[in-house]
Design a protein around this nucleic acid. Structure first.
Lengths: 244, 244
DNA sequence: GAGGTTCGGTTAACACCGTTCACTCGCTCG
DNA sequence: CGAGCGAGTGAACGGTGTTAACCGAACCTC
């Protein structure tokens, strides 16, 4: 019985080793280098043994994506605790800057998770727990929930969003409420209007665009130092969304 | 002599065939399927023969990127001629919608050109002609030049952009002027201020972010119809930049 | 304790990949 | 005509994902 637990623990340990090695190969040599044989070689076993843990290379990559998301969420979480609980604007800025810093420090992982056409993020529902990037989305939305909960100075009239978006944005709002409730923060439903959901969407679009452009080097001109560019964008964004 | 021309023409023809087949494999089965052996197989030759045309697979992919950019530029160009010459706002909207339409219709190519960490877009100077994505950037900036040239209603005070950005933005402005001049449009240098360059940058960030998020399915909630989402973003963008 | 089962691991093999090398063979040119 | 050139070939090397058969030790049951 306890021997069974020991072997089970062993299995989980080698599983962790597999993913750790895969991760190391990803960060050092890019996604193309994360190969089953290389992982096995580094672990002192043979490639087919990995099929006892993952049904295919793509399956392993999928789990790797989830690991990457979890790490990003953890890093953002540590960034967050260093900010004063009441400083909502500071929390938002910490998340945005942390996201950029992480993306620049881990461009391969960023490309894998946030710029992969094969990602299933669009199709499967958020919040059910089986979404690879859910752990990231949760912390992102949780912070938003905290900011929203404490009577923030964000005032967005709901009637400025077009009618065609209300159904989707309402669903988004509902998911937000669930996520925020799960994170422990209490938030009255009427404090999170459709307009705020719309603003959060715009926030994500501009943050993602700026970070992805910087990571992929797709700015339309050579940038000597991208950090001021990001900071001014962030300042504009915070102002435009009404967090000034 | 004329026989030499004939063989030269032959070589160019098979070169086109190679890239056409590579392109076909890319659009149907993704970037991983564009393999030298598959291309050769489809062309009825053997893989090593391709080395008479490209020094490596990566070299071929690079040229493929350029082809994709040229195609995108051509498609945007045809979109553009259908818009009234004097309708500057309509031209801008046509480019943005055309970019989105192309990205959604060619997600693999989009990922290859605009979301590849190995892209050299950041390091090599724009406008020298050897940049793979220059053909796209040129048409994008040319349209901007046309809009700017005809005394557009865009009014952005230059003193709103932070000091840390002026050197980079000035270089961007100068490149813009060169590109616009090359495209035939005449534009007084003082009509293109730093503030407008900054606005164009923000334009690109938000357009790219929206399109990339849609292509990669990375919106934070399931979207039933992304087109209204894009259109409202575009409307906001045009308004924020002062083109309303 | 003996026997069957489970399961992590191995070896061998298949099909495919990029790439190199030596080699044809037809065309061009002097 | 002969030399040269250059596109294309075939074989080969090392690498890949994946499958199949097998092995051996740990486990459960009797």
């Amino acid at each position: 019985m306890h021997m069974t637990q020991a072997t089970r623990r062993d299995r989980a340990a080698t599983d962790r080793d597999i993913r750790r090695q895969a991760r190391a190969l990803l960060v050092t040599d890019g996604p193309a280098a994360v190969t089953l044989r290389a992982i096995a070689r580094e672990l002192g076993i043979t490639a087919p043994a990995l099929y006892r843990y993952y049904s295919s290379r793509e399956d392993l990559i999928e789990h790797l994506r989830a690991d990457v998301c979890a790490d990003l969420a953890a890093e953002l979480g540590t960034d967050l605790v260093e900010v004063d609980e009441a400083d909502h604007l500071g929390q938002v800025l910490a998340i945005c800057r942390g996201f950029r810093r992480w993306a620049l420090a881990h461009p391969q992982e960023f490309g894998l998770v946030f710029a992969s056409p094969s990602s299933t993020g669009a199709h499967c529902p958020v919040g059910t727990g089986d979404n690879p990037q859910d752990s990231f989305g949760r912390i992102f939305l949780t912070v938003a929930g905290r900011v929203l909960a404490n009577g923030l100075p964000v005032t967005v009239p709901d009637d400025t969003v077009p009618d065609v978006l209300v159904t989707d944005l309402t669903r988004f709002r509902d998911e937000l409420l669930v996520t925020i409730a799960e994170s422990g923060t209490d938030l009255a439903a009427d404090q999170l209007g459709i307009g705020i959901a719309h603003a959060m969407l715009q926030f994500w679009v501009r943050l993602y665009g700026q970070v992805a452009l910087e990571v992929f080097g797709q700015f339309p001109f050579p940038v000597s130092d991208a950090e001021p560019l990001f900071e001014t964008m962030l300042a504009d964004l915070v102002r435009d969304v009404g967090l000034g």
